[in-house]
Simulated assay, not measured.
Amino acid sequence: MTSRDPRPLRVLVVDDNPVVRTGLTTLLESGGVQVVGEASDGAQAIELAQRARPDLVLLDVRMPVMDGVAAAAPLSALAKVLMLSYDADADVIGAAIRNGAAGYLVHGSFGAAELVAAIMDTVSERSSPLSPQASRAVVAALREGPGDRPPPEPAPADRRAELGLSRREAEVMDLIARGRSNGEIAALLVVSEYTVKNHVNRIFAKLGVRARGAAIARWLGTADAPPHA
């Protein structure tokens, strides 16, 4: 989808609470976003996403049958995934990001306009939206890894050659890991946002990922290289 595309953004809302789903649907549609379906668990969401082909899946975490963390991986192969939950646990956030979620918002930390903007930013890949709680938690989760996993080695500064990144790409990747948007990176490096986007695309190709969260996990050493790499 481009900025010239007149088609409204198509979103699938996934939450096991029907009141929350109804509220989100009303909020999104009032903001010009088209809700193409609602699901109450991860398994149902995958089936609906395969049929409806939304631009983005707004995905809760705690659900029956299949939770949002488990569903994030197959869903991220079909659409952008933006987690939306009351859960701010660092391990949960880290797992969702490693499974392909492009962003993580915590209920109560944003308004209606901010949610619509976050969806647009996620679909256009302008940024990876993170609530303040999630921003702090995701760094801790990615650095520590799940469960008893040892700290990532080597440190990010030593990973440039290992991952095949140029010096400039490593600088961009480090800023991505710090939660900076493309616009912020452009300002910090004194280059155009178009140049930054080209760097990001090359980084994603070299790391074998499709989303910022997965790139961060590879950069910090908390995710293995994809099978095809």
Rank of each mutant, 00 (worst) to 15 (best):
L28T: 03
S30V: 04
S30C: 09
S30Q: 14
G31D: 09
V33P: 06
V33T: 11
Q34T: 10
V36G: 07
G37T: 03
S40Q: 13
S40P: 02
D41L: 05
Q50G: 13
A52N: 13
A52G: 08
A52W: 01
R53H: 11
D55I: 04
D55S: 05
V57G: 12
V57K: 13
P64V: 09
D67T: 03
A70N: 06
P74K: 06
S76R: 07
A77V: 02
L78I: 14
A79H: 11
K80P: 07
L84V: 01
S85C: 04
Y86V: 06
D87A: 00
D91L: 04
V92T: 15
A96I: 02
A96D: 00
G103D: 02
Y104N: 04
L105R: 00
G108H: 04
G111C: 11
A112F: 02
L115R: 03
V116A: 07
T122Q: 11
T122F: 10
V123P: 06
L130K: 00
P132V: 10
S135A: 15
R136N: 11
A137R: 12
A140R: 14
L142H: 12
E144P: 05
P146I: 11
G147F: 15
D148R: 13
D148P: 00
R149Q: 15
P150Q: 12
P150D: 12
P151A: 10
